[in-house]
């Protein structure tokens, strides 16, 4: 009788440990997937940040501002007479 109880207990313990192992493996995997999604989001945001920075650099480049100033008539025909002043925006005074 005792042998049967011992054997049954060992089997139950073994099965329980396997179940616990499966549960924790799944938890790790799920957390890993969530983590991966967060990291992917982070990469996407970093990428968008780079794209926006590039656009900002292009828009604020002096060469671009001069071109736009000429188009909008904020300069003389032949020259972009831009006054450079550390305290003022770049424009014809």
């Amino acid at each position: 009788m005792k042998k049967y109880i011992l054997l049954t207990s060992l089997i139950v313990i073994a099965i329980s440990l396997q179940v616990v192992k499966v549960i924790y493996s799944n938890m790790f995997t799920t957390t890993g997937i969530d983590l991966n999604q967060l990291l992917t989001q982070e990469q996407n945001l970093e990428q968008q940040n780079i794209i926006i920075s590039d656009q900002l650099y292009k828009k604020t480049a002096y060469t671009n501002i001069e071109k736009e100033a000429i188009k909008k008539g904020l300069s003389y025909n032949s020259n972009a007479a831009i006054a450079i002043d550390g305290n003022s925006p770049i424009a014809l005074r």
Binding site: T29, I33, N36, L39
Partner: peptide, 13 residues
């Protein structure tokens, strides 16, 4: 990286 059974990354680094 660690990949799952379908080859998708589980941990990015």
């Amino acid at each position: 990286i660690i990949k799952d059974a379908f080859g998708k990354p589980v941990f990015a680094k």
